[in-house]
């Protein structure tokens, strides 16, 4: 690990001020992804601002019947929250499908959203990767791309976003609250947080440098059932090959794109009365593969109808 300086923030305003004042600074929350990447010298911040103890770890009711989840709430606490389990079961299911118990106890809500891809070429510093080293090329394009994107990829990058939690949040129409370095608070839909790779896969979100995620806000749970399904190589503790969150008529896919992928074509088709199989076929018209990841197209075509049926069954039981 390269040397860095460390400070612990005592309030959010001080944290963003410190980030603005220090070149190459990064926020440190749970650290489960960032410290791993720092050991591999994929991340090499000069300064860490520890935001892990900021008073933003609460899960609170909002006046309109939703929930505000503080950015520092651990994945375990969110998954175990009684309100999340009864009103947003898809979120609990997605969170407990990710990582291990130890990781979920440390990983935070904000950090989970900002975790980086598991693409093998991003991790292997002897190989080209436009995300790790802009302009160096993409080793995955013609390499071991079994777990690469089938939606929204570019010739510069075919990596996927690995979060399970974010897929459920996308289907739930969650909003992200942030504090900018100038001290200005803003909020926007989660689907506007992450970028597609385009020509600059190293820029992964629409956050401005030094902007801190402070909370994730869930609207009141919509009508209809909820379901989360994930397919992977092992039964537990493994990144997904594909996952899907269904919330009423909303469908979001995971491990298939550079961001949680809202399947809007499938949603429109479902709303127009198409069968779940027809609906996902409409979405998959835009899918493409790079060879080894072609199986994901077939996988998603089967996974989504199963999840939609499961959610409908849950919805009927309400």
């Amino acid at each position: 690990m390269r040397p860095f300086t460390y400070e612990r923030a005592t309030d959010a305003a001080g944290a963003v001020k410190a980030a603005a004042a220090t070149p190459n600074a990064k926020f440190l929350a749970g650290g489960t992804n960032l410290l791993d990447l720092m050991k591999l010298e994929i991340e090499h911040p000069a300064h860490l601002i520890d935001v892990g103890r900021l008073p933003m770890a609460q899960v609170e009711d909002t006046p309109d019947g939703g929930l505000r989840i503080g950015a520092m709430a651990t994945n375990s606490h969110v998954a175990a929250d009684a309100r999340v389990r009864s009103r947003y079961p898809v979120l609990t299911q997605a969170i407990v499908a990710g990582g291990s118990g130890q990781l979920r106890n440390k990983a935070t809500t904000g950090g989970n959203l900002l975790q980086r891809t598991r693409c093998a070429y991003f991790y292997d510093t002897t190989k080209p990767c436009n995300k790790r080293q802009p302009g160096s090329g993409c080793g995955a394009l013609e390499g071991l791309n079994r777990n690469s994107a089938i939606f929204g990829a570019s010739h510069a990058c075919i990596a996927t976003h690995p979060s399970d939690m974010a897929v459920a949040l996308a289907a739930l129409d969650a909003r992200i609250e942030t504090l900018s370095p100038s001290g200005e608070a803003r909020a926007f839909p989660i689907i506007e947080l992450h970028r597609l790779p385009g020509e600059t896969p190293d820029v992964e979100t629409h956050l401005i440098p030094g902007e801190l995620i402070t909370a994730v806000v869930l609207p009141p749970p919509p009508k209809g059932g909820q379901a989360y399904r994930k397919v992977r190589d092992r039964a537990s503790y493994s990144a997904g090959l594909a996952s899907v969150a269904v919330v009423g008529g909303a469908v979001a896919l995971g491990a298939v794109a550079h961001k949680p992928w809202r399947a809007v074509e499938a949603e429109s088709a479902l709303a127009a009365g198409a069968s779940p199989a027809e609906a996902i076929a409409a979405e998959l018209k835009a899918a493409s593969d790079n060879g080894r990841n072609g199986f994901k197209i077939n996988l998603v075509s089967r996974l989504v109808p199963a999840a939609v049926e499961e959610a409908r069954q849950q919805g009927r039981g309400e």
Binding site: Y6, L28, G31, L35, D36, S76, Q102, L103, N105, K106
Partner: peptide, 12 residues
């Protein structure tokens, strides 16, 4: 609470 001590800094 159980955590991986390898993925945490002592100063945290």
């Amino acid at each position: 609470v159980r955590i991986n001590s390898c993925l945490s800094l002592a100063v945290m």
